[in-house]
Protein backbone atom coordinates (compact mmCIF):
# COMPACT_ATOMS: atom_id res chain seq x y z
CA UNK A 1 0.00 0.00 0.00
CA UNK A 2 1.28 3.43 -0.83
CA UNK A 3 -0.82 5.11 1.82
CA UNK A 4 1.45 6.41 4.55
CA UNK A 5 1.14 4.85 7.99
CA UNK A 6 -0.58 7.08 10.58
CA UNK A 7 2.41 6.68 12.83
CA UNK A 8 5.52 4.56 12.94
CA UNK A 9 6.74 2.67 16.00
CA UNK A 10 10.21 4.17 15.66
CA UNK A 11 11.76 6.88 13.50
CA UNK A 12 15.15 5.63 12.45
CA UNK A 13 17.24 8.20 10.66
CA UNK A 14 20.47 10.11 10.35
CA UNK A 15 21.73 13.26 12.00
CA UNK A 16 24.34 14.99 9.87
CA UNK A 17 26.74 17.45 11.42
CA UNK A 18 27.55 20.20 8.93
CA UNK A 19 30.08 21.58 11.40
CA UNK A 20 32.36 18.57 11.29
CA UNK A 21 31.83 17.23 7.76
CA UNK A 22 35.12 17.67 5.93
CA UNK A 23 33.73 16.84 2.49
CA UNK A 24 35.90 13.76 1.92
CA UNK A 25 33.13 11.85 0.12
CA UNK A 26 34.01 8.65 2.02
CA UNK A 27 30.28 8.19 2.78
CA UNK A 28 29.49 8.40 -0.94
CA UNK A 29 32.02 5.69 -1.73
CA UNK A 30 30.99 3.48 1.20
CA UNK A 31 27.31 3.79 0.21
CA UNK A 32 27.99 2.96 -3.42
CA UNK A 33 30.21 0.05 -2.37
CA UNK A 34 27.72 -1.49 0.02
CA UNK A 35 24.72 -1.05 -2.28
CA UNK A 36 26.53 -2.66 -5.18
CA UNK A 37 26.33 -6.08 -3.65
CA UNK A 38 23.42 -6.60 -1.30
CA UNK A 39 19.94 -5.15 -1.30
CA UNK A 40 18.14 -5.05 -4.68
CA UNK A 41 19.57 -4.16 -8.06
CA UNK A 42 23.21 -3.03 -7.85
CA UNK A 43 23.85 0.70 -8.38
CA UNK A 44 24.99 0.90 -11.97
CA UNK A 45 27.32 3.27 -13.81
CA UNK A 46 26.98 4.39 -17.38
CA UNK A 47 30.11 4.98 -19.45
CA UNK A 48 32.29 4.76 -16.30
CA UNK A 49 35.62 4.85 -18.16
CA UNK A 50 34.44 7.09 -20.99
CA UNK A 51 34.12 10.78 -21.63
CA UNK A 52 30.77 11.38 -19.89
CA UNK A 53 30.61 9.01 -16.94
CA UNK A 54 27.57 8.98 -14.69
CA UNK A 55 25.92 6.58 -12.33
CA UNK A 56 23.38 5.97 -9.62
CA UNK A 57 24.26 7.19 -6.14
CA UNK A 58 22.10 7.22 -3.02
CA UNK A 59 24.21 9.80 -1.26
CA UNK A 60 25.97 12.83 -2.69
CA UNK A 61 28.04 15.55 -1.02
CA UNK A 62 27.38 19.10 -2.17
CA UNK A 63 29.50 22.10 -1.20
CA UNK A 64 28.18 25.54 -0.43
CA UNK A 65 29.62 28.87 0.51
CA UNK A 66 27.73 31.07 2.95
CA UNK A 67 28.46 34.76 2.69
CA UNK A 68 27.49 36.72 5.80
CA UNK A 69 26.78 40.46 5.82
CA UNK A 70 30.23 41.07 7.30
CA UNK A 71 33.24 38.85 7.53
CA UNK A 72 34.59 36.01 5.47
CA UNK A 73 32.53 33.40 3.64
CA UNK A 74 32.10 30.04 5.31
CA UNK A 75 32.52 26.85 3.35
CA UNK A 76 30.02 24.07 4.19
CA UNK A 77 30.11 20.50 2.94
CA UNK A 78 26.63 19.14 2.62
CA UNK A 79 25.95 15.38 2.37
CA UNK A 80 22.45 14.63 1.11
CA UNK A 81 20.56 11.35 0.99
CA UNK A 82 16.97 10.24 1.64
CA UNK A 83 15.52 11.96 4.71
CA UNK A 84 12.92 9.21 5.32
CA UNK A 85 10.16 11.83 5.63
CA UNK A 86 7.10 11.24 7.79
CA UNK A 87 4.90 12.79 5.08
CA UNK A 88 6.89 11.27 2.24
CA UNK A 89 5.39 12.60 -1.03
CA UNK A 90 7.34 9.95 -2.97
CA UNK A 91 5.29 7.18 -1.36
CA UNK A 92 1.76 8.39 -2.05
CA UNK A 93 2.35 9.17 -5.75
CA UNK A 94 3.50 5.61 -6.51
CA UNK A 95 0.94 3.88 -8.77
CA UNK A 96 2.06 0.33 -8.02
CA UNK A 97 2.67 0.24 -4.29
CA UNK A 98 6.39 -0.36 -4.82
CA UNK A 99 7.17 2.68 -2.67
CA UNK A 100 6.31 2.28 0.98
CA UNK A 101 7.12 3.47 4.48
CA UNK A 102 7.66 0.82 7.12
CA UNK A 103 5.48 0.96 10.23
CA UNK A 104 8.07 -0.64 12.51
CA UNK A 105 10.95 1.82 11.94
CA UNK A 106 9.77 4.48 9.45
CA UNK A 107 12.28 3.53 6.75
CA UNK A 108 11.10 4.44 3.22
CA UNK A 109 11.85 1.60 0.81
CA UNK A 110 11.20 0.51 -2.78
CA UNK A 111 10.02 -2.99 -3.53
CA UNK A 112 11.97 -3.25 -6.75
CA UNK A 113 10.02 -6.18 -8.20
CA UNK A 114 6.89 -3.99 -8.25
CA UNK A 115 8.57 -0.83 -9.61
CA UNK A 116 7.65 0.09 -13.20
CA UNK A 117 10.25 2.86 -13.38
CA UNK A 118 7.80 5.68 -14.13
CA UNK A 119 9.94 8.12 -12.18
CA UNK A 120 7.04 9.97 -10.58
CA UNK A 121 8.40 9.43 -7.05
CA UNK A 122 11.66 11.09 -8.06
CA UNK A 123 9.65 14.04 -9.36
CA UNK A 124 7.73 14.22 -6.08
CA UNK A 125 10.85 14.26 -3.89
CA UNK A 126 12.10 17.82 -3.27
CA UNK A 127 15.53 16.62 -2.13
CA UNK A 128 16.62 14.63 -5.16
CA UNK A 129 16.95 11.55 -2.97
CA UNK A 130 15.71 9.08 -5.57
CA UNK A 131 17.52 8.11 -8.74
CA UNK A 132 16.26 5.77 -11.43
CA UNK A 133 18.91 3.15 -12.14
CA UNK A 134 19.39 3.32 -15.88
CA UNK A 135 20.60 -0.28 -16.13
CA UNK A 136 17.89 -1.92 -14.00
CA UNK A 137 15.07 0.50 -14.92
CA UNK A 138 13.90 0.67 -11.31
CA UNK A 139 14.02 3.41 -8.70
CA UNK A 140 16.87 3.35 -6.19
CA UNK A 141 17.04 5.18 -2.89
CA UNK A 142 18.76 5.09 0.50
CA UNK A 143 17.57 2.04 2.46
CA UNK A 144 19.21 3.28 5.65
CA UNK A 145 21.25 0.08 5.07
CA UNK A 146 18.31 -2.02 6.20
CA UNK A 147 20.45 -5.06 5.36
CA UNK A 148 23.13 -3.96 7.85
CA UNK A 149 21.33 -2.45 10.81
CA UNK A 150 19.39 -5.64 11.68
CA UNK A 151 22.05 -8.05 10.41
CA UNK A 152 23.16 -10.27 13.27
CA UNK A 153 25.84 -11.86 11.09
CA UNK A 154 27.73 -8.58 11.36
CA UNK A 155 29.74 -7.49 14.43
CA UNK A 156 27.66 -5.11 16.52
CA UNK A 157 29.70 -2.01 15.64
CA UNK A 158 28.95 -2.62 11.96
CA UNK A 159 25.17 -2.63 12.43
CA UNK A 160 24.84 0.98 11.31
CA UNK A 161 24.49 2.40 7.80
CA UNK A 162 27.68 2.12 5.74
CA UNK A 163 28.01 5.91 5.47
CA UNK A 164 27.87 6.31 9.26
CA UNK A 165 30.34 3.48 9.84
CA UNK A 166 32.88 4.92 7.43
CA UNK A 167 32.72 8.64 8.26
CA UNK A 168 36.21 9.57 9.52
CA UNK A 169 35.02 12.87 11.00
CA UNK A 170 32.06 11.30 12.81
CA UNK A 171 29.82 13.81 11.12
CA UNK A 172 27.09 11.21 10.58
CA UNK A 173 25.01 9.77 13.40
CA UNK A 174 22.39 7.03 13.24
CA UNK A 175 19.59 6.35 15.70
CA UNK A 176 15.94 6.50 16.69
CA UNK A 177 14.68 10.07 16.47
CA UNK A 178 11.33 9.17 18.05
CA UNK A 179 13.09 8.46 21.36
CA UNK A 180 13.92 11.76 23.09
CA UNK A 181 16.58 9.97 25.17
CA UNK A 182 18.48 8.61 22.18
CA UNK A 183 21.91 9.95 21.38
CA UNK A 184 20.73 11.43 18.08
CA UNK A 185 17.74 13.18 19.67
CA UNK A 186 20.04 14.64 22.33
CA UNK A 187 22.37 15.92 19.62
CA UNK A 188 19.49 17.52 17.73
CA UNK A 189 18.29 19.21 20.93
CA UNK A 190 21.75 20.42 21.94
CA UNK A 191 22.79 21.74 18.56
CA UNK A 192 19.47 23.02 17.21
CA UNK A 193 19.06 20.44 14.45
CA UNK A 194 16.96 21.59 11.51
CA UNK A 195 14.72 20.22 8.75
CA UNK A 196 15.53 20.81 5.09
CA UNK A 197 12.82 22.68 3.10
CA UNK A 198 10.28 22.70 5.95
CA UNK A 199 7.88 24.65 3.68
CA UNK A 200 7.50 21.54 1.49
CA UNK A 201 5.61 19.89 4.37
CA UNK A 202 7.47 16.59 4.16
CA UNK A 203 8.46 16.41 7.86
CA UNK A 204 11.86 14.79 7.31
CA UNK A 205 13.18 12.41 9.97
CA UNK A 206 16.85 13.14 9.19
CA UNK A 207 18.13 16.31 10.82
CA UNK A 208 21.04 18.59 9.98
CA UNK A 209 23.18 20.26 12.63
CA UNK A 210 24.07 23.77 11.43
CA UNK A 211 27.75 24.75 11.34
CA UNK A 212 28.97 26.69 14.38
CA UNK A 213 29.77 30.34 13.77
CA UNK A 214 33.53 30.54 14.25
CA UNK A 215 35.26 32.23 11.33
CA UNK A 216 35.70 35.98 11.49
CA UNK A 217 38.12 38.84 11.07
CA UNK A 218 39.49 39.25 14.61
CA UNK A 219 40.47 42.55 16.14
CA UNK A 220 44.11 41.49 16.01
CA UNK A 221 45.23 38.96 13.45
CA UNK A 222 48.83 38.73 14.69
CA UNK A 223 50.95 40.09 17.56
CA UNK A 224 53.21 41.72 14.98
CA UNK A 225 50.31 43.38 13.18
CA UNK A 226 50.62 46.72 15.03
CA UNK A 227 54.23 47.04 13.81
CA UNK A 228 53.10 46.64 10.22
CA UNK A 229 50.56 49.44 10.38
CA UNK A 230 51.38 52.42 8.12
CA UNK A 231 53.27 55.08 10.07
CA UNK A 232 52.84 58.19 7.91
CA UNK A 233 49.27 59.51 7.87
CA UNK A 234 50.05 62.23 5.29
CA UNK A 235 52.26 61.47 2.27
CA UNK A 236 55.61 63.29 2.31
CA UNK A 237 58.27 64.32 -0.22
CA UNK A 238 57.60 63.69 -3.88
CA UNK A 239 54.39 61.72 -3.16
CA UNK A 240 53.22 64.55 -0.94
CA UNK A 241 53.87 67.11 -3.69
CA UNK A 242 52.08 64.89 -6.23
CA UNK A 243 49.13 64.47 -3.88
CA UNK A 244 48.84 68.25 -3.28
CA UNK A 245 49.28 69.12 -6.97
CA UNK A 246 46.71 66.60 -8.14
CA UNK A 247 44.37 67.80 -5.45
CA UNK A 248 44.61 71.37 -6.80
CA UNK A 249 43.74 70.38 -10.39
Amino acid sequence: MTALPDRTERRLGLVIDLDTCVGCHACVVACKGWNDQGYGAPLSDQDPQGGAPQGTFLNRVHSYEVVPERGPAQHVHFPKSCLHCEDAPCVTVCPTGASYKRVEDGIVLVEEDACIGCGLCAWACPYGARELDLAAGVMKKCTLCVDRIYNEALPEEDRVPACVRTCPAEARHFGDLSDPESEVSQLVAARGGIDLMPEQGTRPVNKYLPPRARDGWGEETDVLAPFLAPVAEEPQGFLGWLDRTLGRL
Partner: peptide, 25 residues
Protein backbone atom coordinates in the same frame (compact mmCIF):
# COMPACT_ATOMS: atom_id res chain seq x y z
CA UNK B 1 18.54 29.03 2.03
CA UNK B 2 15.57 26.84 3.01
CA UNK B 3 16.97 23.85 1.11
CA UNK B 4 20.21 23.88 3.07
CA UNK B 5 19.06 25.57 6.28
CA UNK B 6 22.09 27.84 5.97
CA UNK B 7 20.13 31.06 5.40
CA UNK B 8 20.41 32.35 8.95
CA UNK B 9 24.11 33.06 8.82
CA UNK B 10 24.30 34.62 5.40
CA UNK B 11 23.62 34.09 1.72
CA UNK B 12 24.34 30.50 0.61
CA UNK B 13 25.69 29.85 -2.85
CA UNK B 14 26.55 26.57 -4.57
CA UNK B 15 30.33 26.45 -4.57
CA UNK B 16 30.98 23.27 -6.51
CA UNK B 17 28.86 20.28 -7.51
CA UNK B 18 29.05 16.85 -5.83
CA UNK B 19 30.37 15.23 -9.00
CA UNK B 20 31.94 16.29 -12.27
CA UNK B 21 29.53 14.52 -14.62
CA UNK B 22 25.78 14.74 -14.96
CA UNK B 23 23.29 12.46 -13.18
CA UNK B 24 19.72 11.24 -13.39
CA UNK B 25 18.43 14.16 -11.33
Amino acid sequence: ASATGLGERGTPRALFPPHTGSNYL
